[in-house]
Design a protein around this nucleic acid. Structure first.
Lengths: 117, 117
DNA sequence: ACACATTACTTTGTCTGTCAATGTAATATG
DNA sequence: CATATTACATTGACAGACAAAGTAATGTGT
């Protein structure tokens, strides 16, 4: 995969990305990990350690809820469900992303050249 | 100023922002500080401590060059000039920003790049 | 049957960028 | 002449990302 994205460019978006995945239905760690790779067209891999750190953070803050799957056979899976507060948080983060995106466009691409595609 | 941009959303872009300012001509710390606020329409303030940290980092890596202004009267000013390598770095960072922007749009909004203003 | 890959979750320790707090010293303003 | 502003700089703390390592189960190839 041609993942060339510096971690600093993603920093701060991890929670939002996870919430967006859970918005579409309950899921568990490893599947979320795979989903994010797929969603980005194999262009970005959110590392497992980062994911599980984020799960704990999000649950502590009441944005997601976890429960163990009832797999009678096979490895146990811890599922996550997005909470009401998590949905609101997602909407808020999305707004902030759009806002920051516009400001960054000005600060990075703004100035003299106008060689926009 | 309505600066409600989380620092994590800017993290990693500081160097690019500074290089973009210097691309338009030599400048010194405090003026760069003011320029960034102005460029963002008072929506973002890059803190002085962060700026000066970045200057040292950028100079150490050969992306900018510093020299003292010859103010015969008035406070001394340390000017910065962008180096060749800095210009290349800027172009590279800009590319990475555009790439990351598209990936983030997918991961956060779940759709395709709607780069609306 | 045995080795290896994959799934699945978790913890520990390290690194880096940002920034609050604080400091210096000069000039400009009311 | 007191205060604000300009201008540069250092220190210490914090938080997020993640490499590395570990545990334990299932699936696959030979």
């Amino acid at each position: 995969m041609g993942s060339k994205i510096s971690t600093d460019l993603i920093r701060g978006h991890t929670d939002t990305i996870i919430l967006n995945v859970l918005r579409q239905g309950d899921s568990y760690g490893y599947q979320i990990y795979k989903t994010i790779i797929e969603l980005s067209n194999n262009q970005y891999e959110l590392k497992e350690a980062t994911l599980y750190t984020a799960f704990r953070r999000l649950e502590k803050e009441g944005y997601i809820v976890s429960y163990w799957g009832d797999e009678t056979q096979g490895g146990r899976r811890k599922y996550y469900r997005i909470a009401e507060e998590g949905l609101e948080r997602y909407q808020q983060n999305k707004k902030e992303w759009k806002f920051a995106k516009n400001v960054l466009n000005k600060l990075i691409e703004g100035g003299i050249d106008t060689d926009e595609k």
